[in-house]
Nucleic acid binder design. Structure first.
Lengths: 180, 180
DNA sequence: GCCAACATGTAATGAGTTACATGATTAG
DNA sequence: CTAATCATGTAACTCATTACATGTTGGC
């Protein structure tokens, strides 16, 4: 089990909510944690295969009378152990890279107007995110059938997103003042 | 010029402050923008070579009477153009991945105590960052010989770091309350 | 009939990290 | 003398993205 591969932990964690196909996993990511996590098929399918070989997930082929065949995966006991081990570990993220800050840092090559545009573009994006968060909250509170604990944890991650967007907007506004 | 490669833009931007060796570039990153950007030699040297072939930077070999030989690179006109084109562009970052939030989202596999530990560990890290920022500010205000404009932009990026750490600490505290 | 959504997979490529290899100089 | 810092580079590897290939089903 390659330690640095984060996709595998995301997959194990998502299978912790119940058996799913690779296709389902991608949908799950996009619809619930898409605002702070991304995955793609070209990575999900090979890793599901590897996890199966390692005995961390179990494959069951489902061939319905109608519709294409699906591979439904579920967590094994070993898979749950691996998931929990990672959850308890406190390795920090290795790559710290903020492209926006890099652009600002090199901003002396731009005019003040162009720098303002860069900041305002970011502001717009954060405002759009804030609007999207309303929909996520609606999903959690009304459409999601999980336990209170699961909802609480989801809301905590959502709150992080909201606070970060609001903070970024505040930062843009005070930075624009500094450019005057 | 491969579009997705961010290291190349970081290198061009840093050479915008003056001619430097690959070694200098790494030091520069670590000492100034290390809190939001990272680079390593295994990537810097090959990319400097490629940028030279593409005519975006110019190499000058310096062999001092004492000390090892150095390759000092400087921005060409084409290099500056490429830098400015990237600065003006507004492609957003592709990979959005927050490992801490992923752990929280899967937190139903941990006890409340273990979840609290995860949050408190993050809180400690952010407090350490806040202390480190004091040193960065000192660097900017007292040791850095650049223009006022350069200092202002640097301080703006620093302020982002400070606000984000403070926000994260607030988020941890209110999340801990939700776990009670 | 056609497009969107369902469903799985591979191949090519690129980005970035880590380990390794080499050698000079300086400070303690 | 030895450790740290200066200085450059390559090789092996992993992670992730994108494009491609293939086929089904349901709705308009």
């Amino acid at each position: 089990m390659a330690k640095e591969n984060k996709t595998q932990y995301a997959i194990l964690g998502i299978l912790g909510f119940g058996p799913m196909s690779g296709y389902d996993i991608k949908k799950f990511v996009d619809m619930s944690i898409g605002f702070f996590w991304n995955e793609n098929f070209g990575h999900i399918y090979p890793i599901l295969n590897r996890l199966e070989k390692e005995g961390l997930v179990e494959k069951r082929e489902v061939t319905p009378r109608r519709g294409p065949r699906r591979n439904v995966y579920s967590l094994t006991a070993a898979g749950k152990d691996a998931l929990i081990a990672w959850l308890k570990s406190t390795e920090s993220e290795r790559a710290v890279r903020n492209e926006l800050l890099l652009r600002i840092f090199f901003g002396n090559h731009l005019s003040t107007g162009e720098l303002r545009e860069t900041l305002l573009h970011e502001r717009k994006q954060q405002e759009a995110r804030l609007e999207a968060f309303a929909e996520v909250r609606d999903n959690i509170e009304n459409k999601y059938p999980g336990s209170d604990e699961e909802k609480r944890n989801w809301l905590i991650t959502l709150e992080y997103g909201i606070m970060k967007s609001k903070m970024t907007i505040r930062w843009v506004d005070q930075s624009l003042k500094k450019l005057e």
